[in-house]
Each structure stands twice: as structure tokens, then as C-alpha cells.
Simulated assay, not measured.
Amino acid sequence: MLSDVKLHVKFKLFALWCSVIFFYIYGDYFELYQPGKLQDMLTGNTVFGPVSQGILLGMSALMIVPALMPFLSVALPAGASRWVNLVAGTLYTAIMILAIRGGWHFYVVFGLIEISLTALIVWYAWTWPKDADR
């Protein structure tokens, strides 16, 4: 029989956010192979309009939160970590539900996995054990 170690919910959240970030990166990378995507990037067009500092700042802000969540999940006190994960997990689940509509099949698959992972983040945060040993 194999032994298993009980992981604290903070480490589970850490791992889930790391997985989410990898799916974001790979989904966006593979999207560049869609015909016209790279040309749009080279000509300065985005789904939000022409490239500007404001557009890039907004897109960066959207990715800063999930990129910080692995650290915040383990570094914040339990109560703050729980609420930050509840809010961020819910927000990024909703964003991905909106983003995958009309996407190519690979993007929809990645999106469904991202939705599952962020929903799992919400579930772990919502059911955060009161017992300090978990």
C-alpha cells in the first residue's frame, strides 16, 4: 500500500494556479498559429482594437492576477487567501466562459480545462477546512 501525504489547501491552490497559468500561456501561444493572428499582431491589431499602451496595460493587468496567485495562495493568511482565491477563481472562470465562445477547437479544449481548474480553485477555497491540520 502506498502512503499518501495530506496537503494543505494552500498547496493545492498553488498547484492549481500554476496549472492555470500554463494553460493560459500554451493556449495563447498555439493561437498564434491560427491564420491571420500573427499578421494582426504585426500590424498592431488586437481583439480590443488597435494596439495602444492602454490596451497592453489592460491585457497585462488581466494576466498579473493569475500570475501572482500561486504566491498569494501560500503567502497570505488563511482568511485572506481564501477570499482572494474565491474572488479571483470566480472572476477567471467567468472570463474564460466568455473567451472560449467561437474559438477554435484547441482553444475550447484549453478553455474548458481552465474553467474546470478555476472552478476547482473556487471549490477548494469555499470548502477550506476549519481544522488547522488540513
Score class of each variant (00 low, 15 high):
M59Y: 07
W104I: 10
Y107K: 11
I115D: 02
F30P: 05
M1Y: 10
M63G: 08
G27P: 04
G54K: 10
I25F: 12
G49D: 03
K12Q: 12
L38Y: 10
L120M: 10
M69P: 01
K130R: 14
L76H: 11
Q39M: 15
I121A: 00
V109T: 12
S3Q: 15
T46C: 02
K10I: 01
I21A: 00
V47D: 08
D133W: 13
G54P: 04
D40M: 12
M41A: 15
S19W: 00
R134K: 13
I100W: 07
I113D: 09
Q53K: 11
C18I: 04
L86D: 02
D133K: 15
P77H: 08
W128F: 09
G44D: 04
F71M: 08
K12R: 15
M96I: 04
F71Q: 03
S116P: 05
H8K: 14
A99L: 05
D4M: 10
V9Q: 15
A61T: 12
T46D: 03
Y29R: 12
L120I: 04
V47H: 09
W126Q: 09
Y29H: 09
K12V: 11
V74G: 06
E31A: 13
R101N: 09
L38T: 10
L117G: 00
P50V: 05
L98Q: 12
R82T: 03
I121K: 00
G36T: 14
F48Q: 11
A67T: 03
F22A: 15
I55H: 11
S81D: 01
L42Q: 13
I64T: 13
L112H: 08
Q34A: 12
F106Q: 13
V74Y: 09
I115M: 05
F14H: 11
T46S: 03
A94F: 07
L56I: 10
V109N: 08
A94C: 06
T127G: 02
F71K: 01
C18T: 05
V109F: 04
A15E: 01
M69E: 02
G49I: 03
H8Q: 11
A61M: 13
I95T: 02
D131R: 01
D131C: 00
I64M: 13
T118H: 00
G36K: 14
T90D: 07
P66T: 02
I121S: 01
D28I: 06
W128R: 00
I95G: 01
A75T: 09
V20M: 07
A78P: 05
V5S: 08
Q34S: 15
Y92R: 01
T46A: 01
V122S: 07
G102W: 04
A132H: 12
A88Q: 04
